[in-house]
Design a protein around this nucleic acid. Structure first.
Length: 297
DNA sequence: AGTGGGACCTGTCCGC
DNA sequence: TGCGGACAGGTCCCAC
């Protein structure tokens, strides 16, 4: 599921249950995801309280009352679902009887919520590219995962000037540059394709070529920045995108996938008004890129 | 230093 | 129906 809008949707889904909840028990149903959990993982969390649910780029950050942060990444196929013992609002086909797990349910957090009820947060991840680990609150910013991370694509900091600085002198194609988490953190394959389409920029174009020669932010940089911010905020608003039946924590589907202009639309006509081009699929650094060869230059 | 390719996993879908 | 191959939302590691 997880580019930034999907991870933010997960955060918003987990927060009401997780915040101020006590972790009464953790079931690790296998010893590792992408990395081993480590001997201390369960011991350091059981009996502790979750004080807040945050996010940085595609990482979920659960603040624990022992000064540590439970850092979680969903990889390619990770998802959380919540089972509330006091909840009658779940859709029938999504809820399962207590204690019955599905294939690839790897981690189960048993919680006592701030309202006194019990609930379980269950992490499922078929491909196991996801991971979780504990990091001290004060060490987060120096940790390799975060130290060189670029800005979030959601705020005012992302503008033409920022992109011009990051892209200047870069020969890498725009597609690769935007996927690089050291430039902007949180973008993934889908939203990069979509943002480049909106901006009318070819994913194959060298990133450095949209910076004006003076090094000042060109119109193209400014426009691209706006389109990235727009697409990310629209996707968050829509509850993210649901591909391959991926669901939100309450079992519902995000619906931004219906707004994709190019992603997954190979062979279709370009949706840009006045453009008679077609959407093509190419492979860049081993991943699919969708774009219109006519209006993206 | 920056860039490109492969590796890590499992599931699904498509063509033969 | 069965099988092989391609592909899937991410990130790391290792060559050039």
């Amino acid at each position: 599921m997880p580019e930034l809008p999907e991870v933010e949707t997960v955060r918003r889904g987990l927060a009401p249950v997780a915040e101020r909840a006590e972790i009464t028990r953790i079931e690790l149903r296998r010893p590792d995801l992408r990395f081993p959990f480590g001997d201390e993982f369960v011991k350091k969390l059981e009996g502790r309280f979750i004080t807040g649910m945050g996010r940085r780029a595609k990482y979920l950050l659960a603040d624990i009352d022992n000064g540590q942060v439970l850092v979680m990444h969903l990889g390619m196929s990770g998802s959380f679902r919540i089972e509330r013992d006091d909840d009658s609002t779940r859709s029938d086909n999504f809820a399962l009887p207590k204690g019955i797990y599905e294939k690839h349910d790897h981690v189960v957090f048993h919680l006592k919520t701030s309202k006194g009820s019990t609930a379980r947060i269950i992490y499922n991840d078929p491909r196991r590219f996801g991971f979780m680990t504990l990091i001290g609150r004060s060490e987060i910013s120096e940790h390799p995962w975060f130290a060189e991370m670029g800005i979030e694509p959601t705020g005012n900091a992302l503008d033409g000037l920022y992109l011009a600085k990051k892209f200047a002198g870069r020969s890498a194609p725009l597609k690769a540059a935007l996927l690089n988490q050291k430039m902007i953190a949180g973008l993934g394959n889908i939203y990069v394709c979509e943002a480049l389409w909106r901006a009318g920029l070819s994913p194959k174009r060298s990133a450095g070529t949209i910076v004006s020669k003076s090094g000042k932010p060109s119109k193209k940089c400014a426009e691209l920045a706006i389109h990235i911010r727009d697409i990310i905020s629209e996707a968050i608003e829509a509850g993210g995108s649901s591909l391959r039946d991926h669901r939100q924590t309450d079992g519902s589907l995000g619906y931004f996938q219906h707004s994709f202009a190019v992603y997954g639309h190979e062979g279709e006509s370009c949706k840009k008004s006045g453009c008679s081009g077609k959407v093509h699929r190419i492979t860049q650094s081993g991943r699919s890129t969708f774009y219109c060869t006519k209006c993206q230059k």
